[in-house]
Design a protein around this nucleic acid. Structure first.
Length: 423
RNA sequence: GGAGAGGUGGCAGAGCGGUUGAAUGCGGCGGUCUUGAAAACCGUUGUCCGUGCAAGCGGACCGGGGGUUCGAAUCCCCCCCUCUCCGCCA
């Protein structure tokens, strides 16, 4: 959620920034200013009325004490009118605040100046590429065939016990899954990210805190009986650790990592290009989350990008990094780098990580602040990234490394898997 | 699931209808003393909103919402949460 103050003081910059998302934000921004103006006027009037009322009440107390009952009764009559007035004003204030919030929820984050113009993913800007795309023989198999051939992931079994998009990992496939999780967690903790295991269900307040609610309600699984949501990413519980928290400047950088399963309903998005591991309702992901000083957050974003690079390089997977254009940028993000690995049998780039700086967009809702040098409270910046999401890493790994003898496991994983080849 | 207790400032803990934004203790900050530190002593110390160049002024906040009253942290109603005991259970 954008800060009203920012809209008020930097109207033109905000408007121009949002233009990059191919939206005309003017009607929304103007409405914010209008409602904010009304809010402040109403607040001033209400405060004056209440001040008057408070003064009278005190006087009435004094009059009773000194026995001037008649005068007290006279004052009492006056208060009823003021009470009526204050009730009306406070209702109006509340309504205005609700309306204001409703509009603010609809305004996405202002893109960073480096975000390129563009409509969709085709306009994303490739900023880095690494590795050789392997040349596979003509009989190379896509991963959904490989998993059957080696009996390592069973979609039918998952469908039987739950439904489509809930695979069962088996044998060397299960072991590979565990190996990757541990490998990622080890690398992340070595890079200074503190490991945590958060709850996999969150309450409503947490959903609002990171912006999944109210807009993306339909994308989360909802346990209605207890009003809890299954997490779509570890970002939600981990970032919410810091909801309503005031950090000290010396606490920076705050660096967390967590492995969790992630649950996504992905309503209506099934069809082409979602075969096999490409899109699932439940998948595993290791996430990194950072809370930063506003002056340092873009430096931190670069560090995160560098870190994720080393993971894919260690896995020997060819990949590229793209800077998302305005049209492809997520609602809450100011700047996002996507990591895409090359899937050799599908001949496609598959997104395996998304690293973003949200600036104050999340912290404003979270009330996540810090005390600066002058002891003033300011909103902190939040960032997060996948390091990494497993399914598509596995897809690329299976496809790219297939050989007549079996599927070659990258060397760094050997200590984790306990085998060098899937066969 | 059953029974009970309770939610007050950074923490602990009083207050149970009027001048209480809230005693007291701890912690924090500033100072005196000291070569330095500790101890002791003195002072200070909440958040949010509005208004103002500022000093300041006004309002709200004692889990959340509503009510009674001229006046509520204190009384009433609803909801949420925590703890203890019992039950169930990995």
């Amino acid at each position: 959620m954008l800060e009203v103050q920012r809209i008020r003081e930097q109207y033109d910059e905000v408007l121009a920034g949002l233009q990059k998302r191919n939206m005309d934000a003017r009607p929304l921004l103007d409405r914010v200013l209008q409602l904010d103006e009304r809010r402040r006027q109403t607040k001033t009037l209400l405060d004056q009325t209440l001040a008057h009322l408070n003064k009278l009440s005190k006087e009435i107390g004094q009059l009773y004490k000194s026995g001037e009952v008649k005068k007290a009764e006279l004052f009492k009559a006056k208060t009823s009118e003021l009470k009526e007035e204050s009730k009306k004003l406070s209702e109006q204030l509340q309504r205005t605040e609700e309306q204001l919030l409703e509009i603010l929820y609809q305004i996405p984050n202002v893109p960073h100046p480096s975000v390129p113009e563009g409509k969709n993913e085709e306009d994303n800007e490739t900023v880095y590429e690494w590795g050789e795309k392997p040349e596979l023989p003509g009989d190379a198999l896509p991963h959904w065939d490989l998993i059957k051939k080696y009996d390592i992931i069973d979609f039918e079994l998952g469908t039987k016990i739950t439904g489509a998009g809930f695979p069962v990992y088996k044998n060397q496939g299960a072991r590979l899954q565990r190996a990757l999780i541990n490998f990622f967690l080890d690398r992340n903790t070595q890079a200074g990210y503190e490991e945590t295991i958060p709850p996999h269900l969150i309450n409503e307040a947490s959903g609002y805190g990171t912006g999944q609610l109210p807009d993306k309600e339909g994308q989360m699984y909802h346990v209605e009986k207890d009003n809890l949501y299954l997490i779509p990413t570890a970002e939600v519980p981990v970032t919410n650790f810091y909801r309503d928290v005031i950090l000290d400047e010396k606490d920076f950088p705050v660096k967390n990592t967590a492995y969790t399963p992630c649950f996504r309903r992905e309503a209506g998005s099934w069809g082409a290009h979602v075969r096999g591991l490409n899109r699932l309702h439940q998948f595993d992901k290791v996430e990194i989350v950072r809370i930063e000083h506003p002056d340092r957050s873009y430096e931190a974003l670069d560090e995160m990008v560098e870190h994720v690079k080393t993971l894919l390089q260690a896995l020997e997977l060819p990949f590229r990094i793209v800077r998302l254009c305005g049209g492809d940028l997520g609602f809450t993000s100011a700047l996002t780098y996507d990591f895409e690995v090359w899937s050799a049998a599908q001949k496609r780039w598959l997104e395996v990580s998304s690293v973003s700086n949200f600036e104050t967009f999340q912290s404003n809702r979270l009330k996540l602040r810090f005390r600066d040098k002058n002891n003033r409270k300011r909103l902190a910046h939040t960032l997060n990234g996948s390091a990494l999401a497993l399914p598509r890493v596995v897809a690329a790994l299976l496809e790219n490394n297939q050989t007549p003898e079996g599927i070659r496991i990258p060397e760094v994983l050997h200590p984790y898997t306990g085998f060098k080849i899937i066969n």
